[in-house]
Amino acid sequence: MAVARLVREDGSVSIDPRVLARARARVLGTPSVSVREPVPAGAATASDGERVWLLPRWPDGATPALLEEYDTAPMPFERGGQARRVLAAALRCCWTRPDDAPWPGSPAAVADVLEVYAGMTRGTELARRWATGELRRLSETGWLLLDEASGTVRPGPRVALWADGSLTSLRALLHTLPQPPHRSSPSSPPPENPEHPSMNDPAVPRGRAAEKSAPVDDLPPEPGDG
């Protein structure tokens, strides 16, 4: 920005590198590094074994959903209803072991996600194109990881911020969505003791899990929808 050129003049101040690393992570959203590289001390992270994503860290287990209690609007996410439906369709395909946490999940074909989405919305060809745009947007914001070259998508690191307690309703909801093609039903898996090693930050950003407890097709339209 224009500001950048100006500010260069007062470069004599030194900043705690940990502070700068946290500031940088905030600017970049959910940046990732190789697991072999060091992560800033005290950072919340989600790893898929190859890369480590830096996640926001909040005090006392608070999440941005806290704003609802204070009648305070969070940063708007345009066409939030549509984005949530596409995220739900992607999770339906990528969260193949519902007893585990959704992160890191497994990759699914974008075509399968669009198929599930079409089944949810009686979608037209146009709806599919919109959904492709949403996949990109969800990928840019860390909710999904989209690999356009291979035509696959998997859960994004922000999903690792969802608290255990919020997953039950999400599991139930996803179960009601159309099944992905080429895959048998994941219903009634054997009971086991679920462990969520990457859920190191019990947080549900912006109350999305709560929103998902309603049937996705019945979500109220958001101000930015359309």
């Binding site: 920005m1 500001v3 950048a4 500010v7 260069r8 007062d10 470069g11 101040v13 900043i15 502070v19 700068l20 946290r22 500031a23 940088r24 992570a25 905030r26 600017v27």
Partner: peptide, 27 residues
Amino acid sequence: SGRTLVKAGRDLWTSGFRDDVAAELAR
């Protein structure tokens, strides 16, 4: 995380990057 309180009007508050941190990030 390099941020500070910003007074955004009478009795209104928000947060933003500290000037020195913004300068460093801009590089």
